[in-house]
Design a protein around this nucleic acid. Structure first.
Lengths: 155, 155
DNA sequence: CACCATTTAGTTGTGCACAACTTAATTGTG
DNA sequence: CACAATTAAGTTGTGCACAACTAAATGGTG
C-alpha cells in the first residue's frame, strides 16, 4: 500500500505525520471555540488549575517563554485570562482564568470524546499508545539533555 | 511520577510532545549538516528519487506548496537542489538534487542509526510503534477528510 | 473552437517552536 | 552588605504549518 521509501521507515516521520494529522482533525472543532491547538492546551490546564505562573505552565507544556508570552498575550486580548506580576516575586507572572475563560469550558466540553472516537481506537489502545509515547518522550528528552551537556562541557 | 492532569490523559499531547522531543534531539546532528528537520526530510527523498515534482514531494511529505515553496527556495539558495519548470506541463516544477546535495548525503549518513540508538528501543519496538502511528495517521486523515467533506456539502 | 473548471506553484498573513538575547528581580557567597 | 550568578519573563529573528488567495497552464464539455 505505502510506497516503501526511506521516509516510511522513519519513526520520527511517523510521529510528525500523526501529530499534524491530529492537529488538523482538531482544527474544525477548535475553530468553533476560536482557539488554536496550543491555546486549547493552555486553556485545558487553566480549567483545572485556575491559576499558575508562566514558569509552571511552561514546564507542564514543555514550552519556553518565547512561545508562551505571545500566546498568552493573545488569550488575554480575547479576555480568556489575565496576567499579573506576582507581588512576592516580581520576576514571575501569574496567569489566571477569567469568567469568560471558564465559560468557554462548556463549549469545549465534548471535544475530547469526539476526538477519541475519531481515532477509531478503543480506550485501552489509546491508553497503551499514550503510555508508550510518554516513555519515548522521556527517553528522548533525557538523551537530548545529555547531548546538550556534552556540548557545554566541551565549550 | 507525572502529575495526573487532563494533559497527561490526552493522546494528542503525548504525540505532540514526542514529536517535538524527536526534532530537538535531531537538531544538534542536523546542525552539523546545516539542515532543519523538514529540510532533512526533503533531502532524504531527493537522495532516493534524484528528481521529482513539487506536487509529488508534497504528497510524500503531506505538505502543500505554501510550506514547500519557500523551503525549496532556501535549499536551492544553498545549492543543494535546482528547480526547473517542466517543459511538457508548465504548471509543474521539477526538483533535482545537485552534486553538492548528493555530497551532503555522506555527511548525514550515520544520523538515522544515531537517532535509533537514542530512542533506547530495539528495532522491533521501533517498527511496531511506527506501524501503529502510520495506521493512526491514516485513520485521522480519513476522519478529517470526512469532516471537511461534510462542511462543503453543507455550504 | 470557446469557455469554464481544474490543476500546479507561488504569495501573503497568522500562529507556533525555538535560539539568542535583554531586562529586571532574586539568591547565594565572600 | 556588595556583587556575581541565577532565575523569570519578554523580545527579536528564523523557519515551519496552514489557510486563503493569485496567476498561469491544462483539460473537458458543449
Amino acid at each position: 500500500m505505502t510506497t516503501e521509501s526511506t521516509l516510511d521507515r522513519l519513526l520520527c516521520f511517523a510521529l510528525h505525520s500523526a501529530s499534524r494529522a491530529f492537529t488538523n482533525l482538531y482544527r474544525p472543532f477548535l475553530d468553533e471555540v476560536g482557539l488554536t491547538y496550543p491555546q486549547y492546551l493552555v486553556m485545558l490546564v487553566l480549567w483545572e488549575r485556575e491559576s499558575l505562573t508562566v514558569k509552571e505552565l511552561g514546564s507542564l507544556l514543555r514550552l519556553d517563554s518565547g512561545t508562551l508570552s505571545p500566546l498568552l498575550k493573545r488569550l488575554q486580548t480575547r479576555g480568556l485570562l489575565v496576567r499579573t506580576r506576582s507581588e512576592t516575586d516580581e520576576r514571575s507572572v501569574r496567569v489566571e482564568v477569567t469568567d469568560e475563560g471558564r465559560a468557554l469550558r462548556q463549549q469545549a466540553r465534548d471535544i475530547p470524546q469526539r476526538m477519541v472516537s475519531a481515532t477509531g481506537m478503543d480506550l485501552g489502545e489509546v491508553e497503551q499508545l499514550r503510555s508508550t509515547l510518554e516513555n519515548l518522550t522521556t527517553t528522548l528528552n533525557d538523551a537530548a539533555r545529555r547531548v546538550t551537556e556534552n556540548r557545554e562541557t566541551k565549550a
